[in-house]
Nucleic acid binder design. Structure first.
Length: 384
DNA sequence: TGGGATT
């Protein structure tokens, strides 16, 4: 079996249709609301992200009218995408600008305006095989674009051959009838200069997954939850979040973090540095150091982040901690009058191993001209 | 011959 470690993909602008309108919900003459400027679709969400985490992430931008993580009807498993409808169109715009491209675990999420829901846009995804290995994603799009508007395209590439095309890809059209026309026109045809004909057919639906495949997926999801991130994940993506105003991931000043991550990511946990939560640990820590470790109090593991800049906002914390695992909440503590960050914040993570990995990796991390201090949140019981 | 975009 060949492991897919990366893919190439386009980002098609999905902007709201029509002319610009004043803020707030727009009521049309037939009574339906026009949510084209407030309703977003979010793609490539991590498989284990919950509805609550989803809402927390997008709620950090502004007031949400409604949001939904789409799940499989039968298994309840996340389908990896969801919808967020904001009250204010400005917040929808802000969400696209600040959260599109955010790295969460093994995924890079995509945030764009949702197209109006309609039967005509369903089942418009095509599976293409037999592509010449030299054909780029752009070439493929050019070939298919004569049949309609392309929403996404992707060519699968192989790890061992350093990103060489596997001759297999996907094309999603805006409309199903466009996809049908593309099949009629291109299935069994040789692209210009190609030796072999390509195969074009409708792609399988996620809900058409076999029972066996679902079991495999469930097993892998469960295994990942308990053994920590897979080693190959460090190769798929830079685990160092690329922050617009932060340090350059390619800059050598981050080599300490690089090494820490590369050393840490293949292992299950760092028990010597971060002993697992247990009553004995709490007792000894409390009595010896006058410090209480915060346990998994239903909400998860609370992490204290110190030395943030006055301009820091919630999205910085999402960007820093999101790649390490499930984050349920982030909070920047601000001065009441100036609304500037007071230099610290909190992050809540669901799983101990992921929280420990985030702390081990981000404590001492240089964010701009500041060095972060990151630890489990403690509460001083007795002042020395 | 296979990722995950329409509630």
């Amino acid at each position: 079996m060949v492991t897919i470690i990366s893919t190439m993909e386009t980002q098609v602008s999905n902007g709201p249709s029509g002319t610009s309108l004043p803020n707030g919900p727009v009521i049309s003459t037939n009574g339906s609301t026009d949510d084209s400027k407030t309703n977003l679709i979010v793609n490539y969400l991590p498989q284990n992200m919950t509805q609550e985490e989803f809402k927390s992430l997008f709620g950090s931008i502004g007031e949400i009218e409604s949001c939904k993580l789409v799940r499989d009807k039968i298994t309840g498993q996340s389908l990896g995408y969801g919808f967020v409808n904001y009250v204010d169109p400005n917040d929808a715009d802000k969400a696209i600008n600040t959260l599109n491209g955010l790295k969460l675990q093994t995924k890079t999420i995509k945030v764009s305006y949702a197209r109006p829901s309609s039967a005509s846009i369903r089942d418009a995804n095509l599976y293409v095989s037999g592509l010449p290995k030299t054909m780029s994603q752009k070439d493929m799009e050019q070939l298919f674009s004569q049949y309609g508007r392309i929403i996404t395209s992707r060519i699968l590439v192989d790890q061992v051959t350093a990103g060489i095309s596997r001759g297999v890809g996907f094309i999603r059209f805006d409309k199903r009838n466009e996809a049908e026309e593309a099949i009629k026109g291109l299935n069994g045809q040789k692209p210009l200069g190609a030796a072999e004909p390509i195969t074009v057919k409708f792609a399988n639906n996620p809900s058409q997954k076999t029972g066996q495949a679902l079991l495999t997926q469930l097993y892998q999801t469960a295994a990942r939850r308990y053994t920590g991130p897979l080693h190959h994940q460090t190769q798929r993506f830079s685990v160092i979040p690329s922050l617009g105003k932060g340090p350059d991931p390619n800059n050598s000043s981050n080599t300490i973090l690089d090494n820490l991550l590369n050393a840490s990511y293949g292992v299950k946990s760092s028990p010597a540095l971060f002993p697992r939560f247990s009553p004995i640990t709490i007792d000894s820590m409390t009595s010896l150091a006058g410090v209480n470790l915060t346990g998994p109090t239903g909400a998860g593991w609370c992490i204290f982040v110190y030395n943030l800049s006055p301009e820091a906002d919630e999205s910085v914390l999402w960007q820093l901690f999101g790649p390490f695992g499930a984050v349920t909440n982030v909070k920047v503590i601000r001065d009441f009058t100036t609304n500037k960050c007071k230099g610290f914040g909190f992050v809540t993570m669901t799983n101990y191993d992921e929280a420990a990995m985030a702390i081990a990796s981000l404590n001492g991390y240089r964010l701009g001209d500041r060095v972060l201090q990151v630890s489990f949140k403690t509460s001083k019981q007795h002042k020395a």
